[in-house]
Write a protein that binds this DNA or RNA. Structure first.
Length: 391
DNA sequence: GCTCTCTCTGGAGACGGG
DNA sequence: TCCCGTCC
DNA sequence: ACTTCCAGAGAGAG
């Protein structure tokens, strides 16, 4: 997924488009997130390492149904909301035709893995079973429905995209419905997202910084318009077409600057030196990036609500076997964060004074590590960040 | 010297008790 | 603050 | 998608 080498090209030629943001810059920001990608990650990652464990070592409820996606989604979403972010999750619809080839490849791979897994099961080879389990991971309709139910109970809006969620997120950002698209995929920019936010899954300070990439600055600093940028992305290599051997980031950028469009580039390219691959239907790919089948902002209504406490207990604790105290503490974080966010919005609307009573130093029980969000702007920058950096 | 390709490396969810 | 067992 | 994938860094080929 993504555009090959685009991150580096932007690093090199449009560094001003990249901002390392702090959490406060995302406070009250609405961000559209590809839900399917997130669920996939959780299904892959949230597992019990299986020495002697049964094969599919996901977290499960009593009846053996997987709950890894719910566990991951619940906590990650709480984390974001707890930091003032307003996430909405966008779900995939039908994939575009141009992706059929790519999807067929993936399906074949999965089938092969399933076959191997089955043979291992018959042989009772638990190690091999576990090995192939991760390759057969697939986000099912059931996972999706459960994720939507959970998010709705949490008061988080969900959006159904007609086609690719990534394209829908981009359009929502483009049309100003949200601040940006939260994704690791650079093709968000090719789909026209005004702002792409990478490494949003901030795990406190121990992880990578959050990076914002601003599309208009990218275009400005590269000296390209959006059509030229799109053509360059196709040249770099995307999910929907093969790339041309021998054309990398440097030549792609050069060529688009020189000729302005793929038509002109191909016309002027030495085809013996750089043969055009057969499946290089750049006209259709260009069209797909430019006008993907997505909903306009006017047809989407985003509302963040208070969590349904009873509903969450019923779903997560009674049906899915989550620990009640953990779910309750999660709900408390949601309620508290929402209160803060509403309060803050009213404050800024009415020009309220700085003084507030929300200065509880303990954001979590017992852990004073995080800076208490005092009302004043005491320049309370967490200075102690770059601690254990040994390398 | 420049550019692409190859190879190697490291990291890949989140929580929380100790 | 980090490590690592656990989350379900 | 961890028996993989990706990004970054450095070496080497054209």
């Amino acid at each position: 997924m993504g555009i090959h080498g685009l991150q580096k090209l932007i690093n090199d030629h449009a560094p001003g488009a990249i901002t390392e943001t702090e959490m406060k810059n995302l406070f009250n920001r609405k961000i559209a997130i590809d839900a399917t990608m997130s669920l996939y990650q959780f299904l892959i990652a949230v597992r019990i390492g299986g020495e002697g464990q049964p094969a599919a070592a996901n977290l499960t409820d009593e009846s053996g149904e997987t709950t890894s996606h719910l566990q991951g989604l619940f906590h990650r979403t709480i984390r974001m909301i707890n930091n003032g972010v307003k996430p909405c999750y966008v779900f995939d619809g039908k994939p575009p035709d141009l992706k059929a080839e790519e999807l067929a490849k993936r399906a074949a791979k999965r089938e092969e893995a399933e076959k191997n897994g089955k043979e291992a099961t018959e042989a009772g080879d638990t190690e091999t079973i576990a090995k192939f389990a991760k390759r057969t991971v697939k986000v099912t309709r059931k996972h999706t429905e459960e994720a939507k139910r959970l998010l709705t109970l949490m008061g988080v809006p969900v959006v159904d995209s007609p086609t690719e969620a990534e394209a829908q997120c981009a359009r929502m950002a483009k049309e100003g419905l949200v601040y940006g698209a939260g994704s690791e995929d650079m093709d968000s920019l090719t789909f026209g997202a005004s702002v792409l936010i990478r490494h949003l899954t901030f795990s406190e300070a121990r992880k990578m910084p959050i990076k914002e990439i601003n599309l208009s600055v990218v275009l400005e600093q590269l000296g390209l318009d959006m059509n030229q940028f799109t053509d360059m992305c196709i040249l770099l290599g995307c999910d929907y077409a093969d790339s041309i051997k021998g054309i990398g980031p440097v030549r792609a950028f050069d060529l688009i600057k020189k000729h302005g469009s793929l038509e002109e580039i191909i016309k002027n390219l030495d085809s013996t030196k750089y043969p055009i691959p057969e499946s290089f239907d750049y006209v259709r790919v260009r069209q797909l990036f430019k006008e993907p089948d997505t909903l306009p902002a006017s047809q989407i209504d985003l509302k963040w609500k208070d969590p349904d406490e009873e509903g969450l207990i019923e779903f997560l604790v009674k049906e899915k076997g989550f620990a009640e105290d953990r779910v309750k503490s999660g709900i408390e974080k949601l309620k508290k964060s929402r209160g803060t966010s509403v309060q803050n919005r009213l404050d800024s609307y009415f020009g309220a004074p700085v003084k507030r009573k929300l200065e509880e130093p303990k954001k979590e029980k017992g852990k004073g590590a995080k800076k208490a969000k005092t009302g004043g702007k005491a320049a309370a920058s967490p200075v102690k960040k770059g601690a254990g950096k040994k390398k």
